[in-house]
Design a protein around this nucleic acid. Sequence first.
RNA 1: GGGUCUUUAGCUCAGUUGGUUAGAGCGCACGCUUGAUAAGCGUGAGGUCCGGUGUUCAAGUCACCGAAGACCCA
Length: 988
Amino acid sequence: MAKISEKDNTDLENRYKDTIDLPETSFPMRGNGPVREPEFQTKWKEEDIYHKGLELRAKEGADSFVLHDGPPYLSSERIHIGTALNKILKDIIIKYKTQRGFRVPYIPGYDSHGLPIENAVVKAIKGGRQAVTVPELRDKCRDFALNNLKGQEAKFKRLGILGEWDKPYVTLDPKFEAEQIKLFGEMAAKGYIYRGLKTVYWSYGAETALADAEVEYNDNHVSSAIHVKFPITELPSSCPQELQGACFVIWTTTPWTIPGNMAICLGENIDYIVAEDSGEKIVVAEALLEQVNKASEREFKASGSSFKGKDLKGIVCKHPLFDRPSPIIFGDHVTTDAGTGCVHTAPGHGQEDFMVGKEFGLEILCPVDGRGVYTSEANSYEFKSTEALEIAKSKNQSLEAKLNNLEFNGGELNFQGFHVIKQGNDLLISALKDSGALLALKKLTHSYPYCWRSKTPLLYRATEQWFASVDGFREQALTEIDKVNWIPERGRNRIYTMIQDRGDWCISRQRTWGVPIPAIYDMEDINEQGNPKAILETEIIEHVAKIFAEEGSSSWYTKPIEELLPESFKLSLRGAKGDVAISERFRIETDTMDVWFDSGSTHRTVVEARAEEFGAKLPVDLYLEGSDQHRGWFQSSLLTSVACNGFAPYQSVLTHGFVVDEKGHKMSKSLGNVVDPDDVIKKFGADILRLWVASVDYSVEIKVGDNMFKQLSDIYRNFRNTSRYMLGNLHGFNPETDKVAYKDLWSLDKLILHRLQSLQEKLTEAFDNYQFFKYYQLIQNFCSVDLSAFYFDIIKDRLYTHGTKSLSRRAAQTVLAELLSAINRLLVPVLPHLAEDVYSHSPETIKASYQGTQFFMKEGEGSILLSNWPEVNKDYVNGELANQWDKILEIREAANKEIETIRAEKVVGKSLEASLEIKAPAASIELLKSIEAELNAVMIVSEVNLIEAEKLAIKASKFDGHKCVRCWKYFKEVNKGICQTCTDAVSS
RNA sequence: GGGUCUUUAGCUCAGUUGGUUAGAGCGCACGCUUGAUAAGCGUGAGGUCCGGUGUUCAAGUCACCGAAGACCCA
């Protein structure tokens, strides 16, 4: 046969072009998520897919799976990338569990009360807090919160999350508030709520006590560290008499607390020593004498031997400024790490001081008010000269202004009215200098607690607060912790030790924007401290709850107290004291509850209160939040639940780490490394953000950055093109009539069906264990390696050239239909928009073949989100076949290398131009012969010669023959330019 | 300062009870293809397993010390 010229060849090719079956689909190659995702979301909303899903499962009598949403705080209308991660994780689980046949309600929640919102609102009020009434301020806070809710809701919806968006839970909801105070009442009735004097962190900037969680530490705080001498005034005969005339030296970094000094605390087993310099005698811990000398630039020399702290019992010193005793006491918290071993003890200004003060019966003096200003109890000091004061004035303008204002020029000065931080430190230092008690003064940079909102240093203040007594149910809580499945396991230890070591829970806040503590005070019943008696009674709370449920908790501040009290209570008063003027005798508590109590009560206020919707009882299946919530929501929820119900509100708790930048550093505005989920969505779409969530191991820190999104986009495109290939080649395929029986499939086809089952099995396991990154790795590998680079590449020949209705083409399509149906559904939890896109472009005949329940499969309706998770088809599992193929694929890989060699030598271009000679041991040859009919296709070459040999040796060469212009394979002979198979295909 | 944890290729992840030459996908480089075409295929190059010391015949894996980072606490 004569050689066919290039031109003739092209002509022939064009003639046969119409006879091949090329892919055909309207499914776009590019996702264009930023634009198209909202369209799918609109469809989901219009068709109410969320409720349809619930109905569907309800009809099936399905079990519920309840993931109870932790409420994000409504401080902003924007969301943080960490919040996006959290919500996406939840949604992935919800979508997966729904597919697995559970009824999965999702009620999103919002945390609306508290200091940050109140501060933000006050900041925006002209004239500040004083310019508005309490109800006005609360209304503004409410508006602010609800406005942010709208913003956050839109962001969450844009992530592709389905849920009860029209009926979320919000902590400011009147019914929520009513349930919350009832829960509080229940705890009170059980005796877990008490009012007590305690030192709490106090922010003078925000004028409130702070929860531990609200405290920040500033590592660069500069303090004036002072050494102060306390002269001994009483020395019992049982003590070493060499102490006669000596001074104890204390060290403190908070000079302003000196007016609160009530004692000096020593360690019983610490060694103390008397040291002398220029006739001056001091007592300090032996181990710290050198440091004292260094700080004071003196040379105190130890005189005599040391003695234990316990030998100094009974000694009394004099306060360095006031005519007041400061006795020696003892505590375990005293160390010789720093200071002098003699601890300045102001029970009104420190946690340990408070404890030890109570133990030794000291007065809990706290001469500082809420603004951080000394009260009248702070005492006065008579300056001997103005010298020290002048120095202080020159360094502290605020102090100077204050003193000038007082027109103080020496003599007695009352500390009342001075701000402890702004003026007190310098004022006290000057007074101590003046009295001669100051031994040393140094600047010290160290870590110091700060207020998270007002960024001011915190004080310790002894105040009256409401507490939940954790002691009352600690053991029960610890027992319950061990019944919970903590994921990862270390979460158990984290919360266990926290609960074990924590103190009582201070639940009162001196703020306006929160749920009021429903207590009242009897102004005619005054206690020892001069405070009116607090009344906390179930009947009052029940009554108030009814009012709150109807009118919201602001009614606490707007209604006259008569209306807040139930008739029964008023009647009981009448019985005792006759008719009384209630409004004169009683006052409402103005403190609000810690917001952690709000969110910590959602098991009652949401899960139980909306039990019908959830269709499940406590404990719920899952709580899922960031690891910081071990101290926050997990804990507050556990405490209230154990206190009232006796068990934990959750069966499982899943925690994720924090999102950090690509280098592993935390995000901050100042570093400029903040990733805004909005930007990601605008640039890449929500599916890419979701894919990011699925791709990382969220149990530790989670990195995020542009490089990652670029990579994720590549993977996404791979999924998309894989789907597009399947859709294109299933054009015109109707499983009902065209499906090929398993026995008639090619061996290769069976292999892929087997691998698909194996993939499904692994993905199911990954999801059941919440290990989404495994899903990401596995499905990516499958699409890229098994399908794109292998199966799809091989079956092109069959699909395009074997004839539309040929058995071999139908066999490949049968497998493609299985693959599409499965992969489409496997994409749902992570990439719902892509999955919906694929589904909406699927031929109706294919859609109908999907497993699962589609009760609205009418044209243009229905959603892939309502499909079932693909089940493993045991008929497709064929381990033996898979093992055989493993060996075949090893040979294929070796063959590819040989072809690459001759390709590099420009002998061949595409592999179809090549012929393979495979020499291999008998077993391998037998194996290859078992698939002889498909061997050329599998290797994507035009000829394979098998030769038995001892060792594997493959040779690739150019096939010497003619190219079939239709199927592009090479043959010894072609007829009219095409091969025999093509001739048959064309004729049929 | 204390508690809990992390650190393996440019990125995301694997690496069984310590056991040959530490794997995968993506990305990258080079080539092929132009019948998945703003696609697809092949081949290849990438690693002081955070550092140090030790235990051991043998350490990415075990122990100790340290570094960097994260969360929580003080």
